[in-house]
Amino acid sequence: MPDTLGKAFRLAVMFLGLAACFPLTAEIDEERAGELRHLLIQECGSCHGLTMRGGLGPALTPEALEDRHDIGLRAIILHGVPGTPMPGWNWKLSEEEAQWLVDLLREGVE
């Protein structure tokens, strides 16, 4: 799907409040995927653990994320959680890349 069309479609979906039912399809090239995986394990791992079992930040294992919707997780990754140490990463990550990370977390990083 062309990117602009994808964005418009997502916007429409978000307005309907149904985004969680229509997950983004993330197209990430191999090099960027390597960078994202490194970022997740090393930088996110500082607080969430290299194996995502948690630290100062909560666990991000597949089980821990079972009841969480994609849209909420993407928002946390991109915008952070006010009042907690979780910072926003939207200066570094696109919405698609945040979704790619959510997908990876749901699979499990080990």
Binding site: S46, L56, G88
Partner: peptide, 10 residues
């Protein structure tokens, strides 16, 4: 009172 910068590692 300034807005703190984001902290990517404690």
């Amino acid at each position: 009172g300034e807005e703190p910068l984001p902290v990517y590692k404690m």
